[in-house]
């Protein structure tokens, strides 16, 4: 593949200082030497357990934290924390629990309008069009703009969260355990929606998860993260069929037991 990666991470390091005792300090190396690339229209899964550095990685990508060293490149350009608002359009996030990330006192249409007003130059009519188009794209109806979050079922709420992320036409969607807790029939619906969007719009996904359940089906490549280090990294089917590290072997085996 000779195109520029949409997202490229080069030798990322991040450590935290943790107080220990009265004067002591302990350095925790949350991430060391992490590199990967994600191409347009592709899905990369970052697989690891709690404490593996997944959340740190997510925080670095959102711009909540800055790396000690290393680079984050977006379409070939280095990103710094001051660009946060600029690249906020390009990268959007979906969290595990949609209900908790939505304001219960705000109608869905209002919420989507806020997103557009804050980040685009669209006028009122253009915003309304965009809202209706996005709702429709996600299998929701125009009327849903007048609903409050509690009026939706779990599956519809996950669609609303997706609508909020997708209304900015991002190029990369980060799914942080967003599919793990869903019921099977709902999960199948959302997975299909994501696959279709990717096919039609060339959207890329970064799937952060500690469950291998869907990784094999929806991701093109995967990276196993363990104690801040990247273990196996490569095409999903290759990692599954021929994991190199003991930890990855254990992980893959546990998904089949």
């Amino acid at each position: 593949m000779m195109t520029t990666p949409l997202l490229e991470i080069r030798q990322l390091y991040k450590s935290y200082q943790k107080a220990q005792g009265i004067f002591g300090r302990k350095t925790i190396q949350a991430l060391s030497d992490i590199s990967f690339s994600l191409y347009p229209g592709q899905t990369l899964a970052i697989v690891g357990e709690t404490g593996s550095g997944k959340s740190t990685l997510a925080k670095l990508l959102v711009g909540i934290e800055t790396p000690d060293s290393g680079e984050i490149l977006l379409e070939g350009e280095a990103v710094t924390i001051s660009d946060y608002k600029k690249y906020n359009h390009v990268i959007r996030y979906i969290f595990q629990d949609p209900a908790r990330s939505l304001n219960p006192h705000q109608k869905v249409g209002q919420m989507l309008d806020d997103v557009l007003r804050y980040s685009t130059q669209l006028d009122e009519e253009q915003r309304q069009d965009k809202i209706h188009q996005t709702l429709q794209q996600l299998g929701l109806m125009e009327e849903h703009a007048d609903y409050y979050p509690h009026m939706f079922s779990g599956g519809q709420l996950q669609r609303v969260a997706l609508a909020r992320a997708l209304i900015m036409d991002p190029k990369l969607l980060i799914l942080d355990e967003a599919l793990t807790a869903l019921d099977p029939s709902l999960r199948a619906q959302i997975v299909n929606l994501l696959l279709e969007l990717q096919k039609n719009t060339g959207l890329s996904y970064l799937l952060i998860t500690n469950h291998l359940r869907l990784v094999r089906h929806i991701s093109d490549s995967m990276l196993v993260l363990h104690q801040g280090k990247a273990l196996d990294y490569g095409q999903t089917h290759e990692v599954f069929s021929n994991p190199q590290h003991d930890y990855s072997k254990k992980l893959i085996k546990s998904a089949q037991s």
């Binding site: 199948a188 299909n192 696959l195 279709e196 089906h217 089917h237």
Partner: peptide, 10 residues
Amino acid sequence: LASKQPLYAL
């Protein structure tokens, strides 16, 4: 089912 093909969903 090939990878990335739609899943069966009610």
